[in-house]
Design a protein around this nucleic acid. Sequence first.
DNA 1: ACGAGTGTTCGTTGCTCGTCGAACATCTTA
DNA 2: TAAGATGTTCGACGAGCAACGAACACTCGT
Lengths: 124, 124
Amino acid sequence: MPARNRARAETPPAATHHRALPVHTDPADVPLETALLALADPVRRTLVRELAADEDWRRPCGSFDVPVTKATLSRHFSVLRDAGLLEQRDVGTKRLNRLRRAEFDACFPGLLDLVLRGEAGSAD
Amino acid sequence: MPARNRARAETPPAATHHRALPVHTDPADVPLETALLALADPVRRTLVRELAADEDWRRPCGSFDVPVTKATLSRHFSVLRDAGLLEQRDVGTKRLNRLRRAEFDACFPGLLDLVLRGEAGSAD
DNA sequence: ACGAGTGTTCGTTGCTCGTCGAACATCTTA
DNA sequence: TAAGATGTTCGACGAGCAACGAACACTCGT
């Protein structure tokens, strides 16, 4: 419980203590199949869109408008992390999220845009 | 059994008689989820790649190198049709296939390229 | 007309995935 | 230290999907 509170000047609000922080898979190590399956779920696409609409590190896990339980939501975040789509950071009691837009886009160009663009095949 | 055998000068080898030909869903009517799910399967991605590698209307259904039964294969083709990825045409006893590259690409830009490009997240 | 070749349909089986409730862990505040 | 807030983990359940064998349908040869 010591914990040095030396606020590191970083992009995010500076993480507090240290909880067993999740594994962040690099998009470059993500098989195409994993990426496609991750974005094939409607709930996860909503999460991705809401993340893209807001600024980085602004939204804790519980702040998303999806019709599922905390348990299910946690699972979805896990899948997004494993797909190289999500980065998380703990601050206080909440876990803040960031969409890895640039990194993911570099590995799967166009895929994220498709999701953010819209639902129909006619797009837009 | 009448059937006008006026060989229509077309792109494909000109269809013979008429079997209950399959329903071809227009890519513009395909939800993003359907497209993603269709390409999320490894067998279907193989089919798509082999189709893209060869010329249009050259490959009958049974000519693909995938480790599944005829029944399963038929099901996969059905899924690809419903995703607006495949067009089929009957000639004699075989059903020839064509990848709807341009049409699908217009609706889901970049998606097909991703599949054809490769498997890894590092692409290429 | 018959048989071979090709593809679809049907019913079943097994596995994966999304979902939930309940219990647990961690951090903050009173 | 106790209470509250936020997420995660742990079975369990149900739906969906890929896969198969077998039976059927259609076309082309002989």
